[in-house]
Structure formats: C-alpha cells, structure tokens
Design a protein around this nucleic acid. Structure first.
Length: 850
RNA sequence: GCGAAAGUGGCGGAAUUGGCAGACGCGCCAGACUUAGGAUCUGGUACCGAAAGGUGUGGGGGUUCGAGUCCCCCCUUUCGCACCA
C-alpha cells in the first residue's frame, strides 16, 4: 500500500487478481445458503451509460454484502444480443449484425471489468449464440405442442418508422416503445403465445410477490392483465334468429339500458342489416370507423368524439322484454368483452355522452344510498317516459329503482342475483374478462431466433423436430429495410425439406421477439453450458427463484409480465416447481443530466448530447469513487441528477480513509482482543461505540437497500476515526485495539461500494494473501453500541427549552425531577401552574404549564 | 379526463415511523499551511434578530402534552392509464 491513493494504480491490479483467482465464480456444490443477485440483462449497444453503471453498482453492492455475510452468491451477467439496432447498423454501415454485436460485447465486457463488478464470468451467456437460441426454439416447440403457440391473421401494431410489428406491451399508449413513432394497425399473419391462458394466474399469484415488489409495478401488472368481473347477457333480436351478446360489470343497471351498441367490426353487423334499406349507409359508416382506427392506434382515440348510427334493428332485453334500438358506434371495441355493450346512459359516462349526442332516453335505475337508507329516486313519475334531466351519469353503486321486481335491492346483491337469474334462464351469467391479449412474437426480422417451423405443400405447417435444433441463422443476409424479413433473401435458409414427408418445403422466415430471450435467461445462468436441455431442473432448483432483481421500471409490464408467464409455462413443463421467478424486485431511478439547449433534466442519451461516458469518469476519479458516488447521491429508486462536483466528494472520502489506514496500518491490536469495556479510555470507548452503531446501521440499511444512508454512516465512522486521532507511535494497547476495530469494520463495509480500494487497504492492514471475499462482515455488539449517557431534551409547552444529561437507566421519576429542577426550565415555568409533565423514557420530557 | 405518488436549507437528501427538523455530502463563507491553489486541514453555514428570543418541512384548517410524520380541504409537480363496458 502506497502513501497516496491513486485509483489507476490499484484498480487494474485487483481486477486482474480477481480474474486470475476466478474469485466470483459460484459453485453448485457449495453447501452455504445461496443468494441469487440479478441485474437486468444489458443490450450490447457498444457502450455502457450511467444508467447501467447505477444498475450494476446497486447489484454489485448487494452481491458483495451477501458474500461478506457468508452466502453462496450467484451474480451472473450476459447479453440481450438479438434485436433491431444490430440490423439498423447493418443497413447503415454495411456490416453484418453478428460482427457488430460481437464487437459491442467485447467493448462492454471491458467496461464492466474496468468498473470491477464482481460477476461470475464463467456463466456469461448471449442470446444470439446458437447454444442459447436453440432453447428459445425448443420452448417454442413445447408451446406449439401444448397449443400455447399458434398462428393467426390479425391486425397488429405496426411501427411505420422501424417497419416492424410491436406487441401490445411494446405499443402501449399508441406509440412505439423504442422510437416513439405513432403506431398503426396492419393485417398480417403472425405467431402468438397464449399468455391469456395464464391471465388468471398472473393476477392470482401477485399475492406471492406483492411484499417484495414495488407497489407501482404491482399496480401496473394488475392493470395490464385487467381482470374484470361481470356478466354476459344475450339479447335476442326482433324478427331475426340471432342473439347479441354483451358484457357488463353492471348488470344491476340493465333496466336502464336504452340501446345496444356494437363495434364496427362485429361479425353480426351484416346479418342485422340484411334486407334493410339502411344497409349500405351503415356498412359504409362502419368502414369509416375502422379506417379511422387504422390511422390512429386504438389507444389514441379515447378523447375523440363519439360517433354512431342506428342499424334499424331492435334487440330484446331479456329481463323485461323491452325493445332497444341496436346501434353501431366507434366507442365500442371488438377485442374486449363481447364487442357489444348495453348502453345505460344514466349510469355510464360514455353511454351518457353518446345518448346526449343522439338524444337517446336516459333512465335512472340506481339511486344513491344516503345514511344507510335508500333515497328517493330522482324521478319515478309515470307518463314521463321515465327520462330525466341529468348533468352527469351516476356511476356509483346504490339501490335499484325502476327495475321491476329487483327494485329496492342494493347494487351488489342485485349483481349477484341477476347474474344467477340470467344463468338459470339460460341467457347469460357471471363471467370474468381480461384486458391482456395474446403475445405476438413474430418479427419480420433477421436478427432474432428463427421460429422453427416449415411449410410443406402437402403436410402444411410442420414443426422442426427437436433433434434438428437449432434452426441456424444464416451467416449473412441482405438488409434493405423494406419490412420484409431479410431471411427471405437467403435461399439456402428458406428452401428446405419437409421433416415429415421429405418433399421440398420452405421455412418460416419470421424470427422471435427478443423478449422471448429475456423471459428465461436467468434460469440459463444456473446451468449455462447444458447441451441437452435449456437447464437441468436440479441446478435451477438450487439457485432460483431470484432473491433480488434490479432494473429500470420501464420493464414493469413488458419483460416482467413475460417472464412471469414463461415461468408458469416452465412449471407446467415440469422444469421448475414454483410459480414466481423473482422474490424481490428493485426498480432503480433514471440517471439524468442537464440538456444544454433546453435546460431540462433528461435521461442521458447520445442524441440529446447530455451523455456522460463512464470510462471518462473512471479515468478521472476511479471506478471506486464513481460507484460510491452513484450510490450515495440519491436513494436508489429516485431520479439521480448527475453532478461532477459531487463525485469529487466521494474521492475525498476515499482518500481520507486511505490516509488513515496507511497511518495506522502498523498498529497491532495487542492484548485487548477480549475488549473489556472499562479498560478503555473515554475516547476509545466512544470510537468503539460509533463502530458498533455503524455496523448495526449499515447492516440494517443493506437489508432495506437504503444505500445512500449507508454510505453516510460509513462517512460518519470515518469522521469519528479522524477525531480520535492518536499517534500510532505512542498509542496504548486499548487505543490501538479501538482504532483497528474501527478500521477493519470500515474497510469491510466499504467493500460493496468501492471494492478495489477496500482490497488494497485490507492488504495494507496485513491480511496479506486473503481476498476480501473470504472476509467476514463485522458483527455489532449491542452492549458496546449503547450510549453511556443520554442528552434528554426538555420542552415547556412543546418548545425545546433545555437539555439534561442523564444515565440511560435513570428512573422516570428521577428524570422528571431532574428536568423540573433545570434552571433554564425553571425560568420558563416560574409563575405558572404545571398542568402535567410528560416523560418519555430515553426520549424527552415535556412540561405543560398554564 | 381518471388514478397513484410526492412536495423538507442554495442543491442531493436524513429524521429510529407521533418525540431535539436539517444526519451525510455538495456548494458557499472565514481561517491555517503554501511561491501558487480548482490540493489539504480547521471552523462556520435553515431563516429573521446585535442579543434575548422568535419563525420554520407547498398553503389553509384539525386531532394531540407534542405533527415533516395522522385526518380534512386546496395548490403544485412527477408518473401511470386513457372509450376495457
């Protein structure tokens, strides 16, 4: 250890040592309790940004902490290496995606190593390598066998800029999740995974993870699955042997229905119009709605004006036989519920707006319940068509009125009983619907896992047999950027023979969504070189579920829904024996920087010109200070505004610790190993107190992942050490013991934040030969952490007036007497009557006077 | 529009969950050491006030001996959802 701290001198040294000793490789046969620390798989764009540094610094701090606590830690890394940017690079620069990707991985691996993240590099995986994507294809075949993968023609979300299909999750909000371009609809034949089959479990199993996941992610997952309880009701059609099925969550309002409204795409529409003079007009109108929707994605149409047209048909309300006009309108969606609704303007905002525009009757059938009793309905007067003046729909539940024999019942009773009645009479019944749609995984792309099926003129669609996997991507393809899969340009790939009959056949040229790769990658880390299975169930049982997952909240509904789904499928395939892959989830905040032109704080990005290069930070301040600062500067879940002056503070702190370790390195703990309390001077006792308080605090904060306060605690300990300030030449045995105890604790606890300097100092403290990974986390002695004396604030009428210094085990009565006797307190209560005295032991005294 | 979360010094943020508001750091001020300092060290730093003291956690009200923390109303910001029947 040198006298002065130069990060560049020591960081490389320890990185090399860790690599040479394979310090962070996890072994399956290690008998200690396991801990799986995982950060989200990076896309190999070619360079790390500060958001990555934050993500991986958090994960590494936790991995180190658990390692020092004696856990067998699995901390792996790999590459989400399929995807569009590689193809864009291919188009732009005429370089093959594979070359580009491999070069990026090399560059980023170097950056990770320069940061000194403690990964088990022996388990590194990459999605674009055949030994990985082979198993994507294997899973696909398993799903195909079980009917979980299927193909259909349907309108898909299409990004016109990137010329690609997007899943519902990727086009949330009507814009492309990657480039922000408004999404349009396009008819295309596509492969889907039946995630809807697991909709109920995706909601139900939330209870297993709720306590370990951020509330906002749980909420978004729930909303995304969109479970909704209600009922189906079949309305008959007058003069036609047809039924229109509607879905409603408010069957209790059915007597207030004044129309049936169907979606423009509803298949019954042509039949309803058969022989009608309105046929041409209505069908033309329906086409206009569809066309409008194709231009704007459906999500963007919410605030648009409601448009509708009467079909001229009448539907029959099965509850009261009433005839209701059937309309077609733009506000009813085909792909939710039944594609048709009963319009109840009095109790639904949208129906209300629609009814007002087209002057449909508005009939109140729910009255508010006031003080636990039924209020008078607003209007029950006969001969008024029971239409009433309302300014808004009354959407709450209440008590039924104007509802025949059901009147007088409360909404929740009526909902249950009316559903049962509908079921008994065979025209409907209780039902549950979900918003979630099946996951479209087809991409008309080259740089992804080929979907392993073949089209044979005789046998039709035929799965590639397992033994023929992987279906390899060709070495090269042409990139035209037209939206057709570039695989179509490679005849050697396309032309094949049918696995069943041997006839000439063609391959599927779509590849899989890259979210397939990331749905199960962390299981592969457990058994990364398995050649006969995606992973051996034994290995996975050893390590999974993931104990702590760390990543950005941008994946709250995409990756995190898919991986939960995938886990359930793997469970049903007998590969794992649990429902949920991730026990605890941490969503870290963005790292932002000021954009010069607009003066706004935005996530760092190349295009905005506000990026900060981690390599430059490492060069200027060292990896240790960079990591320490990024964890100290803000709570992990908050946005972090980058500041270069802040990082200098981190360097200063490290330098101070270094100087102290250097100064005291020769101090021997001498004979005080037992550490009897009374043998220590006041100063040494105070230092030991601070040491043990800090150990307790840091340990506690780590469990909560409060890393910023954690660093603050270490700084406090370092400050206390600085104040203690004994001369190493003349220090007594007990002083040396106290100093050494503090230094060793400080160095070990600093390791998760700044491991290189910690290793160097650990060596400096003459633990030669032993890496910190074999060190032990210090343990806090509560006796030593206890204060000798307490300073108790004394308030008069709630205002702080004085403080009294007392022993921690003073009796309540003594504390009260002492507080009242205090001269300062006396001056405030003099001439007043003491009403009462509140004594909170160990805490405070409050004297109430009048 | 609907929903959720959050508002604490010049800044990032602490506050053992109802008990000394502002830990720790940045910045700033003063001093020391220096040929020099954008190095290092020491001290100071919520606001008003010379002091005694007073005021203070977005604003207003309430509960309580005591409120940053609990309750009600309002304002602002951020995020999420956006015709889901």
């Amino acid at each position: 250890m040198d006298e002065k701290y130069f990060p560049e001198k020591i960081e490389e040294k320890w990185q090399k040592r860790w690599a040479d000793e394979r310090a962070f490789e996890a072994r399956d046969d290690d008998p200690r309790e396991k801990f799986y620390a995982l950060e989200m798989l990076p896309y190999p764009s070619g360079y790390l940004h500060m958001g990555h540094v934050r993500n991986y610094s958090i994960g590494d701090a936790l991995a180190w902490y658990k390692r020092l606590r004696g856990f067998n830690v699995l901390h792996p890394i790999g590459w989400d290496s399929f995807g569009q940017p590689a193809e864009q690079a291919a188009i732009k620069r005429g370089i093959q995606p594979r070359e580009w990707t491999e070069a990026n991985i090399v560059a980023m691996r170097g950056q990770f190593q320069r940061l000194g993240i403690s990964y088990d590099w022996s388990r590194e995986i990459a999605a674009h390598r055949p030994d990985y994507y082979k198993w994507d294809q294997w899973f696909f075949l398993k799903m195909l066998e079980r009917g979980l993968a299927y193909k259909r023609t349907s309108p898909v979300n299409w990004c016109p800029k990137e010329e690609t299909v997007l899943s519902n999750e990727q086009s949330s909000g009507g814009i492309c999740w990657r480039c922000g371009t408004p999404v349009v609809k396009k008819e295309i034949e596509q492969w889907y995974l039946r995630i809807t089959k697991y909709a109920e479990q995706l909601v139900e199993d939330i209870k297993e993870i709720e306590s370990g996941w951020p509330e906002k992610v749980i909420k978004r997952q729930r909303d995304w699955v969109g479970r909704s309880e209600g009922a189906y009701i079949d309305f008959g059609v007058k003069d036609l042997d047809e039924k229109i099925r509607v879905f409603t969550t408010r069957i209790d309002t059915i007597f207030g229905a004044t129309a049936i409204v169907v979606a423009a795409e509803h298949p019954i529409l042509p039949q309803l119009l058969e022989g009608s003079s309105l046929k041409d007009d209505v069908l033309k109108f329906a086409e206009q709605i569809k066309a409008a929707r194709a231009i704007k994605a459906e999500d963007q149409t919410a605030d648009e004006e409601k448009l509708g047209m009467n079909t001229g048909r009448l539907a029959i309300n099965p509850f009261n036989g009433e005839l209701l006009p059937v309309w077609v309108a733009n506000y009813v969606l085909m792909d939710y519920g039944a594609g048709a609704v009963m319009s109840v303007p009095a109790h639904d905002e949208r129906d209300f707006e629609f009814a007002q525009k087209y002057t449909l009757p508005i009939r109140q059938v729910i009255a508010p319940v006031i003080h636990g009793q039924q209020s008078e309905p607003v209007n029950t007067a006969p001969g008024h068509d029971q239409s009433i003046e309302m300014k808004h729909a009354f959407v709450e539940s209440g008590v039924l009125v104007n509802s025949g024999e059901w009147s007088g019942k409360l909404s929740h009773e009526a909902i249950r009983e009316m559903s049962e009645y509908a079921a008994a009479k065979n025209f409907g019944g209780g039902a549950v619907t979900y918003r979630i749609r099946d996951w479209g995984i087809s991409r008309q792309r080259f740089w992804g896992a080929p979907i392993p099926v073949v089209y044979c003129p005789k046998c039709g669609m035929t799965p590639v047999p397992e033994k023929d996997l992987p279906v390899l991507l060709p070495e090269k393809a042409e990139f035209t950027g037209t939206g057709e899969s570039p695989l179509k340009t490679v005849p050697e790939f396309v032309n094949t023979t049918c696995p069943k009959c041997g006839a000439a056949a063609t391959r599927e040229t779509d590849t899989m969504d890259t979210f397939v790769d990331s749905s199960w990658y962390f299981f592969r880390y457990c058994d990364p070189r398995n050649e006969s299975m995606p992973f051996a169930p034994d290995s996975v049982a050893k390590w999974t579920p993931v104990d702590q997952y760390i990543g950005g909240d941008s994946h709250a509904v995409m990756h995190l829904i898919y991986t939960r789904f995938w886990t359930k499928v793997m469970r049903d395939l007998g590969l794992v024996n649990f429902n949920e892959p991730v026990k605890r989830l941490l969503t870290q905040g963005m790292v932002t920087n000021r954009v010069e032109e607009t003066n706004e704080w935005k996530a760092m990005s190349k295009s905005l010109g506000n990026g900060v290069d981690p390599d430059e930070m490492i060069e200027a301040f060292g990896a240790d200070a960079t990591r320490l600062f990024i964890l100290f500067a803000a709570p992990v879940e908050n946005e972090l505004r980058w500041s270069e002056t802040g990082i200098e503070g981190a360097v200063r702190f490290l330098r101070r610790v270094w100087t102290m370790v250097y100064r005291y390195a020769g101090l021997r703990p001498a004979e005080h190993a037992g550490g009897v309390r009374t043998e220590f001077s006041d100063g040494a006792r105070a230092l030991r107190r601070k040491t043990h308080q800090t150990i307790a605090r840091v340990t506690d904060d780590f469990e909560k992942l409060d890393l910023n306060t954690n660093v603050a605690a270490l700084m406090e300990l370092s400050n206390a050490l600085g104040e203690f300030n004994v001369d190493p030449a003349t220090a007594s045995g007990s002083e040396a013991f106290a100093v050494r105890e503090a230094l060793e604790a400080l160095v070990v606890m600093l390791t998760p934040f700044s491991p290189h300097i910690a290793e160097e100092m650990w060596e400096g403290l003459e633990h030669a030969g032993g890496l910190l990974k074999s060190a032990q986390w210090p343990s806090a002695d509560p006796e030593l952490a206890k204060k000798d004396e307490l300073e108790i604030p004394v308030q008069v009428n709630g205002k702080l007036r004085s403080r009294v210094v007392v022993s921690p085990d003073i009796s309540e009565a003594d504390l009260r007497a002492l507080a009242l006797a205090d001269a300062k307190v006396q001056s405030f209560i003099d001439g007043h009557k003491i009403v009462k005295v509140i004594v909170v032991p160990q805490r405070l005294v409050n004297v109430v006077i009048k």
